[in-house]
Design a protein around this nucleic acid. Structure first.
Lengths: 192, 192
DNA sequence: AAAATTGTTGACTACACGGTCAACTTGAGT
DNA sequence: ACTCAAGTTGACCGTGTAGTCAACAATTTT
C-alpha cells in the first residue's frame, strides 16, 4: 500500500503498473492478486488506509475546536507547507494533494475509486466548514453561509496546491495564510 | 490532434495509447510516426494548436480592454460555464480544464510537455492580472498587488473547475461570478 | 502431530503496446 | 509521360502488461 501510494503520487495512476507496484513492495504478482482484484481495488484500500490512520488524526488535531478558529487555519497552512516541503526533500518534486490529483485523473474511469476520493475530499472540506462557522460565531469574519465559504476556500487551496505541483515550486505557499484571511474577509489585521 | 485532445481530456494522458489515437483519427501507426516522435510530442503540438487557434482568440475577445473590467470577469465565468456545459452534453461528463488536469498528471514526467502547459497557463493568468489592474485603476476594487490577486483568483478558478470534473457536476459554477467579486472585494454590490 | 487454513511463489498465457520498415500511393512540377 | 518528394500502409518484432494456476510454505487450529 505504501508502494502504490508513492508510485501513483510521484507519477500517475495510469502510468503505474502492477508489476512496478509488486517490485517496489517486494512481492510477487500472485500475492498481489491473492489480496486485491485490480489496481483500482488496491488504490481504494491504500488511500483509505492513509486517510484513516494518518491524515485524519493529523487534521483532527489541527482543527481541534479547542483552538481559536483563525489559528486553526494558520496551522493548516503551515502543515500544508511543511508536508509539501518534506515531500520535495524526499522525492525532489512538489507532489501536491494525492487525492485531488488522482481524483482529477480518474474522474471518468474507475468509478469506485472515484467515489472514495470524493468521500474523503468532502470530509476534508468539513474541517474548513466548521472552522468558518466558528469564526463567524465569534464575530471574527462575516460568513452567514459557512458551507459556501468553505467550498470557496477549499477550491482555492486545492487550486493552489495543484499549481505547486504543476510548477514544482513551494513559492505559491508564500502568503497562503494571508490570502486565506483576505478571502474570508478577516476583520482584525492578523492574530497569532 | 483533435483525436488526441479528446482522448486525453475525456480519459487521461497515461491511459491514452498511440493505437487508440490512430484508430480515432483513422490513421495508421506508420503515419503517426511519420509526423511525430512520441505521444508527448503529439500532445505538445495538439495543445499548442488548440491554444493558438481557438482558446486564445476567444479569451482575447472576452478580456478585451474595451470592456469594463468587472464585466470581463463575468463574461469569463459565463464562458467557463457554457464551455463545460457543452462538454457535458457531448461527452456526458464534466471534464474541467484540459491543461490543468494534464499538467497535474504529467508534472513529474514529460518535461517538454509540462513546460508548454506551464507557458499557456501563465498566459491565461495574465488575462486576470491585467483585468484586476484595470479594476483597481478604476477604483472598483482595492488591489495594489494585481499579480498576487490574479494568482489567487486563478488558483480559485482552477480549483473550482477541477472540482467540477471530480464531482462531475456543473453545480460548483453557481455563484462563480459572485464568489469572484467577493474574493476581489468588489466595492459596489453588483454591476451588469 | 495432523489437519486445515492462509499466504507465497515461479512459471505460464494471451495480448496490447511502442516502435520500425520496405513497399506502395498520391500529387505537384516539369 | 516522367520524376521526385511527401505521405500512407500493412506486416512485423520485441517487450511489458494483466491475469491465472498448480504447487509449495507458513501459520494456526484441533
Amino acid at each position: 500500500m505504501e508502494a502504490v501510494r508513492e508510485l501513483i503520487w510521484a507519477g500517475s495512476y495510469g502510468a503505474t503498473t502492477i508489476d512496478q507496484i509488486c517490485q517496489k513492495a517486494g512481492v510477487k504478482k500472485g500475492s498481489f492478486y491473492y489480496f486485491f482484484d485490480s489496481k483500482a481495488d488496491l488504490a481504494v484500500a491504500a488511500i483509505n488506509e492513509d486517510w484513516e490512520q494518518r491524515r485524519r488524526p493529523e487534521l483532527d488535531a489541527i482543527f481541534s475546536p479547542t483552538i481559536p478558529p483563525l489559528e486553526r487555519l494558520k496551522k493548516y497552512c503551515d502543515y500544508g507547507y511543511r508536508f509539501q516541503a518534506e515531500i520535495k526533500a524526499k522525492f525532489g518534486c512538489v507532489l501536491g494533494c494525492p487525492l485531488f490529483t488522482l481524483g482529477a485523473e480518474v474522474s471518468t474511469q474507475e468509478a469506485p475509486l472515484q467515489k472514495k476520493i470524493q468521500e474523503i475530499l468532502d470530509q476534508k472540506r468539513r474541517y474548513l466548514e466548521s472552522t468558518i462557522r466558528d469564526a463567524h460565531a465569534a464575530g471574527l469574519i462575516h460568513a452567514p453561509d459557512a458551507e459556501a465559504k468553505a467550498r470557496m476556500l477549499f477550491s482555492f487551496y486545492q487550486g493552489l496546491i495543484t499549481e505547486a505541483r504543476i510548477h514544482n515550486s513551494l513559492e505559491v505557499f508564500r502568503g497562503a495564510v494571508h490570502h486565506t484571511y483576505e478571502l474570508l474577509g478577516v476583520k482584525q489585521p492578523v492574530p497569532a
